[in-house]
Write a protein that binds this DNA or RNA. Structure first.
Lengths: 281, 281
DNA sequence: TTAATAGTGTCTGTGAGACAGTATCAA
DNA sequence: TTGATACTGTCTCACAGACACTATTAA
């Protein structure tokens, strides 16, 4: 019988659902016989974004094994038996970047990265070897030192997202470079689009900034993520006028040159109302 | 494991497709030996929302098997070996409601339901029997006849979401009713929040309406989903003034009483700019 | 007639965008 | 000094919200 009743959701109303059967008949008394459903591997993949030199960049790692050996891919790995999806993503993030993610409850700046679930990709055949369902996560981090991937710097880098998303893009050496492995170009594009829309109505853009930052630095984050130029004067009026967005620390800095600018920390507000408006829409 | 070559994903660009082999070694590395990762079951769960009698309602089915036997849960089931996640969700939706989902590309109204991925839930222990990762989907449907779940009406119903989300809620019979099975209360809450926010900046509210509808009917959808009262005159001015949102069909109806109202179909616009504003924020 | 809903017009306050002008540093 | 960035003020247009008013049906 169907008793599909299996799912962690499975619901079996009357029991007339059919079940995946691998060749042999499925015994309804054993709904969780592993042979009753297809074997899945579950992984987490990470879209780790940062702003470097006025460009939105993503962390890419070079694949050391086939398929796609030598191609760039998003970092990721298997979900372990005893961890939930967020833990798996946080673990991978720490392994790749040294960052520890702060969950949504972390109020003050702890120099961690923002981490959230992005979407799940599970097309049969997205991995040529077996059925792999990948729960992609999005991480936003301040500008970091050069990445380390298993200690080997040549196998990990921050790459501008436009470069990674170019169709049959060109590498830095000028030669044609293959696009990202697997469906990672799609995952990256989805992550970038999530980041672009989310900084509109939330204070998440501060996740790209160091603990203390100026209004101009925050504006350059918006400009890099959206790929537009913003009016510095209107931007200043807007962000300083939004309650809870920015908290002045009292200090100033001239690291951007020009007149000393006030330093701020991220305020407690997470939702911006009214939102920042992305031009050209 | 950095540079986790294991991260799955993918599309095989070269066409050389290897096959999952159960039993023999995948290759010299361990990561793809089936015994190298925990056994996962992957399911889809559905948050199917509709508006009935001025209330936002969700489809619930009664569990026929333990655990949570007799409790209400969200519909769902296993992902099959040959289908992707969206196909699995669409199949479950059709089995439960008879609706066929239209993908995002469907422009004209085909009386199908809107279907999109919501989020993925994979806590170890969310299903007491084994490790189940559920990819939840959100479906928005017009008001439907009574649901059928395997032909047995007593095992499926449309329930107001507040009722399903009450802590230790009370059933219709006045007695205390257990909350939803598994972590389905969380999934439902996430789906409701997604729907509430998405009708702000998209034309998705029309997915709750029949093919032809009046401005007043659309307004009652917003009021039911948001749980607020909207000014009919400002609402009318707003939606009829947004290009691409509504297309007049030429017909009128008096099914709501009062002066005959123009009938509209959903226009081609999917993103509303500027968005509908939810009061009381 | 009353009651209900549909639809239009008009005012006001908020805020985004444009942009003039001033402030304060480094070189 | 020049040139950079930081900040303030002011104007205008768009639009959300409030609400008066008219239109068209059923009972």
């Amino acid at each position: 019988m169907a008793v599909l009743d299996g799912s962690g959701s499975g619901i079996d109303a009357t029991g007339e659902r059919s079940v995946y059967r691998q060749g042999d008949d499925y015994d309804h008394r054993m709904p969780y016989d592993p042979s009753a459903f297809p074997p899945f591997a579950v992984t987490v993949d990470l879209v780790v974004l940062t702003v470097r030199r006025h460009a939105l960049c993503a962390l890419a790692v070079r694949r050391g094994e086939s398929p796609y050996k030598g191609r760039w891919a998003l970092p990721g790995g298997f979900v372990r038996a005893d961890e939930d999806l967020t833990q798996a993503a946080a673990r991978e993030l720490a392994e790749e970047t040294g960052l520890h993610a702060h969950d949504a409850s972390a109020s003050a700046q702890d120099n961690g990265a923002h981490l959230e679930q992005l979407a799940t990709y599970g097309d049969p055949g997205r991995d040529p070897r077996m059925r792999v369902v990948s729960v992609a996560h999005l991480a936003l981090a301040p500008d970091l030192p050069a990445p380390r991937a298993g200690g080997d710097a040549s196998n990990a880098r921050w790459a501008p997202v436009e470069e990674l998303l170019e169709q049959g893009g060109h590498g830095r050496d000028g030669g044609t470079e293959a696009p990202l492995a697997f469906d990672h170009a799609q995952i990256l594009a989805d992550g970038v689009e999530r980041a672009r829309s989310k900084i509109e109505y939330s204070s998440l853009a501060t996740a790209f900034c160091p603990t203390e930052f100026t209004v101009g630095e925050l504006r350059r984050v918006y400009e890099a993520v959206w790929g537009v130029a913003l009016d510095p004067r209107n931007f200043h009026r807007k962000v300083t006028g939004t309650p809870g967005f920015l908290v002045p620390t009292g200090g100033t800095t001239t690291r951007q040159g020009g007149r000393p600018a006030q330093l701020f920390r991220a305020g407690g507000a997470t939702l911006l109302n009214p939102p920042m408006l992305r031009p050209e829409v």
